[in-house]
Amino acid sequence: MRQRHLGQAGGEVSAIGLGCMGMSEFYGASDEGESLRTLARAVELGVSLFDTADTYGFGHNENLLGRFLAEGGAARRAGMRISTKFGIVREAGRYERRIDNSPEYVRAACEASLRRLGLEQIDLYFCHRRNPEVPLEDVIGAMAELVAAGKVGQIGLSEVSAETLRRAHAVHPVAAVQSEYSLWSREPEESVLAACAEIGASFIAYSPLGRAFLTGSLKLDELAGNDFRRANPRFAEGAAAVNRQLVDGLTSFAGRHRASNAQIALAWLLAKHPHVIPIPGTRRPGRLAENLAAADLVLSSAELAELDTLFHPERVAGARYAEAGMAGIENA
């Protein structure tokens, strides 16, 4: 597996990581045994960056990773870099959330994540969403204290503006920004990607396959009743019909390269910026090898431009989240 730097001091990680959220929530029922097999296969294939958050499954996702780490012992831990997040507070059974960035919460959330993960140190700790009512300097200050205490290796921010990133970095080095970025979600290109390059931060791209829509294989009428995509504007009937035409173009492009849609979408991200690390999620071992093969695909500048044009932001229908999901997300 090809490698990329994780911030300025985090060493190297696999060019493609693994987003673990779907193993616990949001995409219908999951199988814990299958999830553990997927994690094991990811390690076998060279994945070293694993992403979770305290809100995924209300702690279940961190517990799952903690179990996997414990079963593998010190050798497994040595080959894995764990990123997790704090800041989104939800009630069971509800999608709505509030954002807590208070220093007291930052410290308490970190301790809880360490317990669930069974770790002495979190490699990369993200502020999941920003609450503008809490001074940024207070948030970063609390995170910096965790670094000084050895409980966190590096800090990151999620879904923030370039301005926020620069302000935060002036308080303490920011190793990474995590935001949605894919062929059909291009907002980071406005300024955040450049700001990351400017300060030496990595950009962790979540939902790089458009929550599976870009794969061309998603059947909307088969989504589980509790699958959050049912309420996502881009998956609504009218928007989906428009977006499906874009995916048809991607399918045609991928066919010319004898690749899958997922491989082209990931290769596009890797080719666009050297500091981008996509973290596609999957709950099945069989999808891993397909996704990771994207690291070896080479796209020319002309091919990148073709994909850029196909998925020009003005051609994509629907917002990327329902209103409740936009809480704490800053403009680029």
Score class of each variant (00 low, 15 high):
S48N: 03
V47L: 03
R115D: 14
G59V: 03
P103A: 01
P135D: 14
E137S: 13
R76W: 05
N101C: 15
E91P: 08
S83V: 03
E62S: 09
D100F: 12
E133D: 15
S48F: 01
L114A: 01
E96N: 12
L136G: 03
I82Y: 05
G57V: 02
R130E: 07
S48E: 00
L65F: 02
N101P: 05
S102I: 07
E62L: 03
E120W: 04
A109T: 01
T55C: 15
T52C: 04
R107W: 06
K85Q: 04
Y105H: 15
V139Q: 08
G87E: 08
A92H: 12
E120V: 06
S48W: 00
S102V: 04
V139K: 09
G66F: 07
G93S: 01
L124M: 14
G118Y: 05
N131M: 11
R67F: 02
A112L: 11
V106M: 08
F68C: 04
A144K: 14
T84H: 06
H60V: 07
R67Q: 09
D100P: 12
I82T: 11
E104T: 13
G93M: 01
R81I: 06
G46V: 00
A78T: 08
S48C: 01
G66W: 03
F86C: 14
N61E: 00
T55Y: 10
P132L: 10
A142E: 07
L64M: 13
N101W: 09
G93L: 00
P103N: 12
E62V: 05
I82E: 05
E91Q: 14
V89R: 13
